[in-house]
Write a protein that binds this DNA or RNA. Structure first.
Length: 821
RNA sequence: GCCGUGGUGGCGGAACUGGCAGACGCAGCAGACUCAAAAUCUGCCGAUGGCAACAUCGUGGGGGUUCGAUUCCCUUCCACGGCACCA
């Protein structure tokens, strides 16, 4: 018999699903809802194996849940703004809009070839103006609520391309396009106040049991909460204070110097008109030529200069010198530290280099002994050299010192986060325009909501040089001030594409809405996303931003939930020859070619079978062949059975082979159901379906009289169970068997309990934990009898030999272990 | 340095709450069908010893708990991923 015609079968059912709107959903049903979402792709024009894996996983879940009786929302769209479109415009002279539209068209065709169960009626593209209108509208809500602001900031600037670069375009300090050294430029930039939500974003991670721990810790690290104190030091001879942040206020008696970041606001004032002004400025200038990566690397040697100034430790009243140094960061904490060389390695390295005093204030033992050479003591211990706090443990002293600081009004207990505000301005064309107008009279003025969207103009030049291409459009640049009506200038920056993708999952719930980004009712019905699936590479940014947006929307009463994604599955990469598939490495496998050769069902089956979803998957051409063989085996099993009219055979008495087959059918249903329900063990689900297929072949060949009903039940079970994985062949076989309804609308099978009851069970006999024999016993044999049986067993007797039986452990229905000596 | 994940046959991977290690698939070997090949079907397939029945070893290494450990505890090594001069 020939292999089945994949192309014909797949085309037929893809058209069937399309025409009958099988996967179109609405909110008007009694069924419980289930929202499955895969991270939407950037429309590069071609799908890759990572997409195939991602969307196959999502599709199995969507189809399974639908068969389980859920009202399943499974949408798809395009993360369509971004740099590649603009680069294409610069390079090939194609307008980003045309380039993107064509890519979406091409990629949609490829996705359709995979037979994914999307509700295409809800399709979105972030570059469509009826989408970005709402991105702008949301920006305005942020603006109204003081959650977005503008401030001066240093951006990456390529002097040769004469343009601003995104961080991703800076490859080890050089421009990705022309390779010249990237510098910094001061520009006014928009920021979201994500730091206001730092604590919520951190705390609510605990409310996400359905997220992998890996992702939660990554976000936790990124937010980087540390508790400590802010302490103010008076400057000697200047009516100003320097505020420091420390997590170790208990070490304050050991602070022997103060360090400011070179960018610290007070530096200029400290050295103005002093002998130190020149050396300090020289040092700062020198640092400006050092890249950020180099500057902030832990291996960079610590360097600094004395400012000539001193400040006063508020607790000990000791006078200590003020330095500036490269190892203190301007934008963390207060940009200044009290340096405690005895108990901080960085401070110690610096102190040794510049011969600054080291005072140990913590001892590892109660006797107060300390021994600091070139290694700082950073653990807990007992206080020394700390006046009234001496002999306390550091744990006791910590709150007491904080209390004292607060009582003398020299500072307070506080919390610091590593998380920074989110810089969203991009000096780019192909993004959502920021809806702001600058007016000479009124200043920064938001565009009125009814005048949205602020549309991207067409009359733009793409040279790759200068500021944003938007600055070249006269029609765009000049706009009336919404407040006073005189001519102003539009904001020419566009938004980071992460803004677009931070709320797309909400738009799907109500994608046609022209009054709001999404209605409260619809989002309430569909949200949160019951299962979100995507790569780990988005573990921090995309997922954190989406969580932030969701929390803001809740506070603005646009939404009712506090977390967008209830369950998260981070799928592993697709590797070939041990490395991630990539064009530059030349180790890619084209999904189109695989589909052409073996069909979508095989492609899907392979990526689901070859590895558990969260692990990396090693591509194997032979593995694909294996899956193709399997599907053909299923096809032949069904086709031959129909040809030979096997389903019509009848039989009077059930024998043990029938019983065993029935057991296998129902235990397979149970296994596959559990694998899909609890964890997503697609690989083991598929392997147990394979076992059932093997079993049915055996039954067909070996049973003396075949029970047609039972056999058909076995066949139909296989076809149903395989439907979420390889839907086209399942539909076709289902029809071939003579069923009229589409398998996509079929209910998932339930296993029958009584089929799983066995009269006989295999029990293992062990001697000293080592397997000696396996025997079949009746399921209702009692403990004593089983023990007797074991002791009488020939192989067991042989193993016992002359030794004494000390103990016998009987585990009913499992084993007997005889302990001998 | 800190945090996380993972180490099981030739390979991808199974083993649900501690109870038959290696399911299922790939590769390999042998056979059937065939003039032949492909396809398909059948059998074997962790290591060592043995003609064999069988015995011993075996889940990165070492130790522990237990009648019994891939699974639990301690320790150690290796690989991958994240963060990192964060005070």
């Amino acid at each position: 018999m020939d292999n089945y015609n994949t192309k014909q079968v797949e085309k037929k059912w893809q058209e069937h699903w399309d025409q009958n709107k099988v996967f179109t959903v609405s909110e008007t049903t009694d069924k419980p809802k289930y929202y499955v979402l895969e991270m939407f792709p950037y429309p590069s024009g071609k799908i890759h194996m990572g997409h195939v894996r991602n969307y196959s996983i999502g599709d199995v879940i969507a189809r399974y849940k639908k068969m389980k009786g859920y009202n399943v929302l499974h949408p798809m769209g395009w993360d369509a703004f971004g740099l590649p479109a603009e680069n294409a415009a610069i390079k090939h002279g194609i307008h980003p809009d045309n380039w993107t539209t064509q890519n979406i068209k091409d990629m949609k065709e490829q996705l359709k070839l995979l037979g994914l169960s999307y509700d295409w009626d809800r399709e979105i593209a972030t570059c469509n103006k009826d989408y970005y209108k709402w991105t702008q509208w949301l920006f305005l809500q942020f603006y109204k609520n003081d959650l977005v602001y503008k401030k001066e900031s240093r951006v990456n600037w390529c002097p040769s391309c004469e343009t601003v670069l995104a961080n991703e375009q800076v490859v080890s300090g050089s421009c990705e396009r022309c390779d010249s050294a990237v510098g910094k430029r001061l520009l006014s930039q928009w920021y979201f106040r994500i730091t206001d939500y730092a604590d919520k974003l951190l705390k609510d991670l605990d409310a996400l049991p359905g997220w992998p721990d890996k992702v939660k810790t990554m976000q936790g690290n990124w937010i980087g909460k540390s508790e400590g104190a802010e302490i103010e030091f008076k400057i000697d001879g200047l009516a100003k204070n320097i505020k420091v942040f420390t997590t170790r206020p208990d070490t304050i008696y050991g602070a022997t110097y103060m360090v400011l970041a070179p960018e610290h606001a007070l530096v200029t004032e400290l050295v103005k008109n002093t002998n130190f002004e020149e050396t300090v400025n020289e040092f700062i200038n020198k640092l400006q030529h050092v890249s950020d990566i180099e500057r902030t690397s832990a291996d960079t040697e610590k360097e600094g200069v004395f400012t000539g100034r001193y400040c006063i430790n508020p607790i000990s009243n000791k006078k200590i010198p003020i330095y500036i140094a490269n190892y203190v960061l301007a934008d963390y904490g207060t940009g200044a530290i009290m340096a405690v060389p005895a108990h901080d390695q960085r401070d110690l390295d610096f102190a040794r280099k510049y011969n600054i005093e080291v005072i140990p204030v913590i001892s590892s033992s109660i006797d107060g002994e300390t021994n600091i050479e070139n290694e700082a003591y950073t653990q807990d211990g007992y206080m020394v050299n700390s006046e009234e706090f001496n002999n306390m443990t550091t744990k006791e002293a910590f709150p007491k010192i904080c209390e004292k600081i607060e009582s003398i009004d020299a500072g307070k207990v506080t919390t610091n986060y590593r998380l920074r505000d989110w810089l969203l301005s991009r000096q780019r064309y192909w993004g959502t325009p920021i809806p702001i107008i600058y007016c000479e009279k009124c200043g920064t003025v938001p565009v009125e909501e009814e005048n949205l969207p602020v549309q991207l103009p067409i009359d733009v030049k793409f040279t790759g040089k200068g500021l944003s291409p938007l600055t070249t459009s006269e029609t765009f640049m000049n706009a009336k001030c919404p407040k006073c009506g005189i001519m102003g200038k539009r904001e020419t920056d566009t938004m980071d594409t992460f803004v677009d993708s931070s709320w797309y999952f909400l738009r799907y719930t109500d994608s046609q809405n022209d009054k709001l980004p999404f209605s409260k009712e619809k989002s309430k019905y569909w949200m949160g996303v019951d299962q979100y699936i995507g790569g780990v590479e988005h573990a921090i940014l995309h997922l954190l931003y989406s969580r932030f947006f969701t929390k803001v929307f809740k506070d603005l009463d646009l939404l009712d939930i506090k977390e967008p994604f209830k369950n998260l599955l981070t799928q592993g990469m697709v590797l070939k020859d041990g490395a991630k598939m990539s064009k530059s490495k030349g180790n890619t496998v084209s999904p189109e070619e695989i589909i052409e050769k073996y069909g979508a069902d095989t492609a899907r089956l392979f990526v689901l079978f070859a590895a558990p979803p969260e692990r990396d998957l090693e591509w194997s051409d032979q593995g694909v062949e294996g899956c193709y063989r399997f599907l053909n085996r299923v096809w032949r099993l069904v086709a031959e059975s129909i040809e030979k009219d096997l389903f019509k055979r009848t039989k009077e008495d059930i024998d043990s082979q029938d019983k065993e087959l029935r057991y296998k059918i129902h235990s397979t249903i149970k296994k596959v159901t559990e694998d899909l329900d609890t964890r997503f063990n697609f690989n083991t689900a598929i392997s147990s379906i394979m076992e059932l297929v093997n079993e049915l072949y055996k039954y067909k060949e070996q049973s003396k009289i075949l029970d047609g009903n039972l056999f058909k039940n076995g066949i139909e079970t296989i076809v149903t169970l395989i439907a979420p994985f390889s839907p086209h062949i399942a539909e076709e076989l289902w029809e071939l068997i003579g069923n009229k309804t589409s398998i996509s609308n079929l209910a998932w099978p339930e296993y029958e309990r009584d089929a799983l009851v066995k009269d006989e069970i295999e029990v293992v006999f062990q001697v000293n934990g080592k397997l000696k024999n396996k025997v079949n016993v009746s399921t209702n044999i009692d403990k004593e009898e089983l023990e007797k049986l074991a002791l009488q067993d020939e192989k067991v007797k042989l193993a016992i030999g002359e030794k004494n039986v000390i103990k016998v452990i009987v585990v009913p229905k499992k084993l007997v272990n005889i302990v001998i000596k």
